[in-house]
Every structure is written in C-alpha cells, then in structure tokens.
Amino acid sequence: MEYDEEARLVRPYTLTRGRTRSGSAHLPLEALVRGVPGVTATPASPEHGRILALVSAQILSVVEVSAHLSLPLGVVRVLIGDLAGDGLVIVHTGSNPATQTPQAHLKVLESVLDGISAL
C-alpha cells in the first residue's frame, strides 16, 4: 500500500474528529458517489476536498474512494456522509434486496446473469 505523507502523519479518526458514524445512513461499500455538477464550496478539510475532486471527475463507489485515496473505509464513509449532508455529493445506494420487491430483485439478477453470460 502506498500512502501519501499526509495520510501517514494523521491518525485516521482525527480526520473525522472522533466520529465513527456520520449523520447520514451507514453507507454500503458499493454505494456510488458523485459530485454535484456546478456546485462549488470550500471543503471542510483537505480530505473532504480530495474526495470531492475524485468523485467530481468520475462516479465511484465508497470502497473505490477508500482505495484510491488510501483512507480507511470507516473514515471515508463519515467524510462522504458529511459531503452528502452539505449537498456537495449525491450518493446512489445499490440494488439491495432488503429495499426491493422480490420481483424487482429477480429482474436485476436476470440482467446480471444475462450480462455475465455475454462476457
């Protein structure tokens, strides 16, 4: 793993000011995050800024943001929660069977099966 100087010098939970959960829902690892086009704001911290820059360039999952920025998942979840709370990013949660009708979930599975079969 590569860390930049900043990440190595700062204890992860200092970045979240000791918080392990953000006000928003516990984000799934695969939830997709993207910057809101046209919205500019001064990020609350350099790490908020790094996340914002990354997801403004491309839509990425929570877990990809964590990997690309070498920040622990728990930290990234909290910081993305902050950004979403401030209206700077949009979070799209995945296809979760718990929040879908069985019929809708089955349709998603059909599409997955068709898609993998066609690879």
Partner: peptide, 27 residues
C-alpha cells in the same frame, strides 16, 4: 433459460439529467 430483461436502472426513465447512476450489485 430465464426471460430477458431490459430493466436494470428503474429510476432511469424520469430522473433528472446528471442524477442517473449505474445499478450496483455485489458478489
């Protein structure tokens, strides 16, 4: 054989531009 489905992104139809995202699944 399962019937084919073209429904993958149910919110795609009338979502405002810029807010449509891929549907994620995981294994």
């Amino acid at each position: 054989a399962f019937p084919r489905s073209d429904v993958a992104a149910p919110e795609a139809a009338d979502a405002p531009p810029g807010t449509v995202a891929p549907v994620t699944v995981k294994i």
